[in-house]
Write a protein that binds this DNA or RNA. Structure first.
Lengths: 204, 204
DNA sequence: GGAGGTCCGTGACATCTGTCATGGAACCCG
DNA sequence: CGGGTTCCATGACAGATGTCACGGACCTCC
């Protein structure tokens, strides 16, 4: 038998990380060679461990998984990344692909399929959840302009219009206008609702 | 050696569920005898499998983990429950204990400790994350009155004051007043902020 | 160059939201 | 009983929010 595939695990929840390691170690052709709990530790760990596949969660402190995957792809292209996430947000998939990830799996998929996904990614194939891919194409890219996303992202922190205006250096009226546009485009009725909708689609 | 401890797994994310099963199966004195992905399947599965310990996630479709634990405790008291959750919200711990759960673990804890937690629970001991317990005591019970939580819960869906008023059968002014009280008590400045704060504490 | 499009920016205006003062009902306690 | 407390309820009022009509800047495509 040839050398096992070297896998890096990145997930902020220690319990899940350890459990995934146990799951993958059941496969004789896979070896978990590194585990990290923060996005900004992925690159160094991948280099030190000479990992071939990095299993990366999207939600992580330090650096989010998509940014980590992008960095990894640019700096260490021989290490392919497989994004694993709790939320099947269409925007995540799109951004993951743009970041150069080789695969995208949601945590709803049966455990038995994970090892296969890792093997395929290691071979240079792409792995994408079919249902999610369809949804992603249907919902499309973000309809929000740059300014709108920027303003909405700050509004998500619960700040008032006045604060947002000071943060981005615009007049209050303009901020209100961008928010109004965002509300209209997301089909929401509130600012809070717009934040929820945009967030659910991964547009923030 | 005696019989292994019979464990039931309840988590809506198939991948995590399978991974946890792999982790626990590494221990020779534990046996995963059932797995479910919905809260309303816990009771039947526990009965059919004669599980001794039920590992239950809080966030689940059908019936949330806390309600499932309460039902389990009342109907099948010989099966103890261990709550495992992503979010270490103080209110969750309190409610879990009130529901008759024997243990409470967040997914941040090291994987190695999970098996120990299961063993302790099986022996009738209580298992609680110490840091979280302290936080729970510090933050205390919800300061919100019944009406306030009710109104705030509906407001969380993004509804306007008018809709909330119709839903609960109050005048708009009264609804605004309850919301105002909730905002004050949570130390928030917005309705949305109040929802976020209350939700983070598990008060909804 | 001109027509059409998108995005950014602004102020005026109606509406919604949060705060306040106030009062009634239920309860506990000396 | 009278005083105190808590919760529920309401309307008035100031301030924040969302919508609208309008211009200017930039780009693309005849």
């Amino acid at each position: 038998m040839t050398e096992p595939i070297r896998v890096l695990l990145a997930d902020d929840q220690a319990l899940v990380r350890g459990a995934l390691a146990a799951l993958l170690e059941l496969e004789s052709d896979l070896a978990v060679v590194a585990q990290v709990g923060r996005g900004d530790e992925v690159l160094d760990a991948a280099r030190d461990s000479a990992a071939q596949v990095a299993l990366i969660d999207v939600e992580m402190p330090g650096l989010d998984g998509l940014a980590a995957a992008r960095l990894l792809h640019r700096t260490l292209p021989q290490c392919r990344s497989l994004i694993v996430t709790t939320f099947g947000r269409p925007g995540y998939l799109r951004r993951a692909m743009e970041a150069g990830a080789s695969g995208f799996v949601v945590k709803d998929t049966p455990a038995a399929q994970l090892a296969d996904a890792v093997r395929r990614v290691a071979q240079g194939l792409r792995v994408v959840d079919p249902a999610l891919a369809a949804e992603s194409l249907a919902s499309g890219a973000s309809p929000l302009t740059q300014r709108e996303t920027e303003v909405l992202r700050i509004a998500a922190r619960g700040g008032t219009v006045n604060e947002i205006a000071r943060d981005v250096g615009l007049s209050e009226g303009t901020v209100r206008n961008h928010l109004s546009a965002a509300i209209g485009k997301t089909g929401a009725r509130n600012r809070a609702d717009a934040v929820a909708q945009a967030s659910a689609n991964g547009w923030l």
